[in-house]
Design a protein around this nucleic acid. Structure first.
Lengths: 128, 128
DNA sequence: CTGAGTGCAAAACCTTTGCATGATA
DNA sequence: TATCATGCAAAGGTTTTGCACTCAG
């Protein structure tokens, strides 16, 4: 009989192996409050003298995104911007939904749909 | 004395000359309810047998966007998606703002910001 | 030792732009 | 006719991918 056990990991699920590059990217991402693009992150790391390939930055960010360790948004120019943590919580908003409908109909709109997004620092990240 | 008068135009402000290509794009955009990318629009037009250059599609959509005739959003993949009309109305939302703050803090978040977007059919478009 | 991770360069995207040609007002 | 608009191809940017090499486990 064979089984696939997974031990707890100190560095998340974004990659199985703990490499120098991933440590660097994790550190830089943790330090910066703001959203950064892959290229910016690449520049930041190299600015400190460390060397990481751009492709690795993209691959790592993609993995971290899939693992839910980072948050992604799109800039108006279509660039992907990443931020540490990525904790997402569903919030129910009956209040907002009725507000949205009323506000839209007030201006003569029908077939209304809405998007509400909240951004903030989670309690865990605030402790750092 | 010289002056630059601008006469009223039947086809909007997105371009000065009324060309075959712009008519085509306007028609196709008006027909489709959904958001479409520049490439999709290009494909749609050519699928009907008409011929338009891709660059023209991009240039026309850009002009129509600046003129406020269409609405633009970014897909999750970073592609620009366009939709007819583009009428935008500012809505004030004191109610939403307090709701957003409360909802976020309920989950332990601080430094909260929020984005609320409403989409719908405006009364003018609904008449078509 | 073995396979996941890396770097590099090439390629795949979407989008913009330069320039000669074509069409509108 | 005088421009403005178009088409094409080239170039711009971000992101992905193929492949040989490296390194963590």
């Amino acid at each position: 009989v064979s089984s696939t056990e997974s031990a707890p990991r100190a560095f998340g699920e974004s990659g199985r192996r703990d490499t120098r590059q991933r440590r660097l990217l994790r550190e830089h991402l943790a330090e910066s409050e703001a959203f950064v693009s892959a290229q910016q992150l690449h520049d930041e790391v190299r600015a400190t003298g460390d060397k990481v390939g751009l492709a690795t930055v993209y691959r790592t960010l993609q993995a971290m995104t899939e693992a839910g360790e980072v948050d992604v948004i799109r800039s108006d120019e279509g660039e992907a911007l990443y931020r540490n943590c990525g904790l997402t919580v569903e919030v129910d908003g009956p209040a907002v939904e009725s507000w949205a409908r009323d506000a839209a109909e007030e201006h003569g709109f029908t077939e209304v749909t809405h998007v509400v997004e909240l951004f903030g620092r989670c309690s865990s990240c605030s402790q750092h």
